[in-house]
Simulated scan of single mutants.
Amino acid sequence: MKRLLKLSLPLVLLVILGGSWWLISHRTAPAQTPQPMAKPKEPHYRPLTLSELNHDPKLTACSLIYYAVKHSKIQRWQEVADFKLGWQLDQYPTENGIKSLVWPDKQIKANAKQLQPNWFALSKTGAVTYHSFIVHSFRDDMTLTTTLPKIIQQLNQDHAATKVRQLRSNLVIIAHQKTAN
């Protein structure tokens, strides 16, 4: 019996040590609160604002031209639809705001300015009137009237703010002085 005890004691110790090691190595970590998955960042869209347009005349002009090309039903505004060529604006102050003649191509030369261009008037109150001369006709200009806040709303609805901001580099403004009558 002594002999059996001598042989079984190391075996029991081995089982106890092995079992202890197994319990320690396979012990589960305390339950952790799962961390919420970080949402992938969506590209940040910065809408146009009236304040921004009031402080950036080029952005205002680009917004008005973009709106005319994309949303006016006046066919002749498609003549200035090449956004890569850009535009040249001749701006004239009026009693109520600014009148802007819109020429296609930011590098247009004076000798190419033969036909009356499309133009828009922006009043101090934010009213916008688009005009287009009807070629080979003795009728009045075609017009469209809207407001700057409505244009901003439409461009933001179109998610066009980023595109319009990029168009500023394709715009040349020639500011003319008000002439005395």
Rank of each mutant, 00 (worst) to 15 (best):
S132K: 03
S51I: 12
G86Y: 03
Y130C: 00
K113H: 10
G86V: 03
S132E: 12
L89Y: 12
S137P: 09
I152F: 00
I65V: 15
L155M: 13
A61N: 13
L59D: 07
T125C: 03
P149W: 04
I152W: 02
G97A: 03
T146N: 11
D141L: 08
N111K: 09
V69E: 00
P93I: 01
R76D: 09
V128K: 01
L122A: 04
S123N: 05
Q153D: 14
S137L: 11
H131I: 01
K106V: 02
K150W: 04
W103P: 04
L89A: 00
L85C: 10
I151M: 11
R76Q: 08
S132D: 15
P93Q: 08
I134V: 13
T125P: 03
H71V: 00
L89R: 03
H136P: 04
S72V: 01
Y66M: 13
T94G: 08
T143L: 05
H71S: 01
I98G: 01
L89T: 13
L59A: 01
L53N: 01
Q88H: 15
S72T: 12
Q78D: 07
E95F: 05
P117H: 08
I152R: 06
I151V: 09
A68M: 09
F133H: 15
D140V: 10
D90C: 05
L64E: 01
A112C: 06
Q114A: 13
G97L: 04
A81Q: 14
T129M: 05
N111S: 14
N111D: 13
M142Q: 15
P104M: 02
W77C: 00
L122N: 06
H131P: 00
I152V: 15
W87T: 10
H131R: 06
Y66K: 09
N54Y: 10
S100M: 07
S63C: 07
I151C: 06
H136A: 11
T145S: 13
P149A: 08
H55S: 15
D90H: 15
S63P: 02
D82W: 12
L155C: 05
S132H: 08
T125Q: 15
E52R: 05
S63N: 04
V102W: 03
L64C: 07
T60L: 12
Y67G: 01
N111R: 08
Q78N: 12
T129Y: 00
L122P: 01
A81F: 13
N118Q: 14
S132F: 09
A112L: 14
T129C: 04
L64G: 10
A61H: 11
I74T: 04
G97Q: 00
D90T: 11
